[in-house]
């Protein structure tokens, strides 16, 4: 059990680190959110699972289980709201972008 939780927490920290590197390296706000939502959400979920394996099904473990869906819905909805907000605010897609179907939609 201890070893499983150790491995899970290490994987989580690794993915969080990769997410943060992506946050710095990628060119514009949309691509940065890609790395910020995916890597950081899975990394944190992995850390929480590690906490569950460490403590077992008691107070802390159950809180860790509940935190996973909350984090998941929170991160996805926040990413969606940030992308839409950035677009409506007028931030252009980066130079490498190849396609923009959202441009000619009537904003309401």
């Amino acid at each position: 059990m201890e070893i499983i939780s150790f491995i899970l927490i290490c994987i989580g920290i690794l993915f969080n680190l990769l997410g943060c590197i992506g946050l710095i390296r990628l060119p514009d706000v949309y691509n940065r959110l890609q790395s910020a939502t995916k890597c950081v959400t899975l990394g944190t979920c992995s850390i929480l699972l590690g906490v569950l394996f460490h403590f077992g099904f008691n107070e802390a473990g159950i809180k860790a289980i509940i935190a996973i869906p909350l984090l998941f819905f929170g991160a996805t909805v926040a990413a969606h709201a940030l992308v839409k907000g950035a677009y409506l605010f007028g931030i252009k897609l980066g130079d490498k972008s190849v396609k923009d179907d959202y441009k000619d939609v009537e904003k309401s």
Binding site: G22, P27, C39, K96, K99
Partner: peptide
Amino acid sequence: NFDVAYRVLHPAMPIKPGI
């Protein structure tokens, strides 16, 4: 996650973003 990690760590950054 592995897909995004690969794109982040690759020196040339193989991205082609769009909506």
